[in-house]
Amino acid sequence: MSEKKKTTMEILREKVEELLRTDRLPHVWCPGCGIGIVLNAFLRAFIRAKMDPNKLVVVSGIGCTGRTAGYVNVDSFHTTHGRAIPFATGIKFARPELNVVVFSGDGDLFAIGGNHFINAARRNHDILVIAVNNFTYGMTGGQHGPTTPTGAYTTTTPYGNPDRPFNIPHLAISLGVPYVARWTTYHLMQLQNSIYTALHRKGFRVIEIISQCPTVYGRRNEMKNPLDMMEYFRKFSIRKDDATAEEMELTYNGKIVVGVFRDVQGIPTYEERYEELLRRAQK
């Protein structure tokens, strides 16, 4: 009896599973959560890029997305809240041949870790940042964060959010980041392609992914069910690569402008500039 030939999907699934710590499943993420979609897109892009998993390092901070490092079957670090980027900086600067990816959430990267984000971006470290933006602090029960749209309801904004959210692509572009993109979990193929491209680029690369958190965000904002949020992403997102800063702004239940907003090559990375410095110092 001959074995049934495996389908392409089965082969891909096996390859994805090789990159997951399947002995840690089930994961902590809620049913309907978007983080798994992002992780899957990342792993598929990585498989397509045919890069060496032994040279891949995934660093996460704290929070729901911060748990990602715990599920990838490569060198992976679950660090302190907000500090994934400087931790990754130490790894990359010490060993530039490693492929360093920071996988973390909006609160971790832009509130408590905001100072590290802007400074690492400014220095242009050769690090890929996968920033999952679910508009809220999910792990602690749905408080408002640095990306919660003005007017949104969360456990700490029971009368609507008076705060103003970060415009992440605009922030990254202002810092000279060479690769800046935004997608939603609805844009599975575009996201995968974007990660694939970013894996081949050098320097600080930022991909923001708008992701659904039906459990603690959606249900307080009239999108109780995961599909409601995905439907919102589908209906309200517009691709516009040349979007202005104003157009990139996210508003409460408003339009979501997605696309590759910046893709510039040839900007020297911090690690490259340091190599030059080493040559001067050792003359």
Binding site: V59, D75, F77, T79, T80, G82, R83, I85, P86, F87, A88, T89, G90, I91, F93, A94, R95, L98, N115, H116, I118, N119, Y274, L277, L278, R280, A281, Q282
Partner: peptide
Amino acid sequence: PQVGGKFIEMEDEIGSIAAIIGASWAGEKA
């Protein structure tokens, strides 16, 4: 730099210690 080592001035002390922990995992005495 004279001995082929790495020096970086970080944005604050929190970033500094996070970076040396990362560098130590990467194999350096940091």
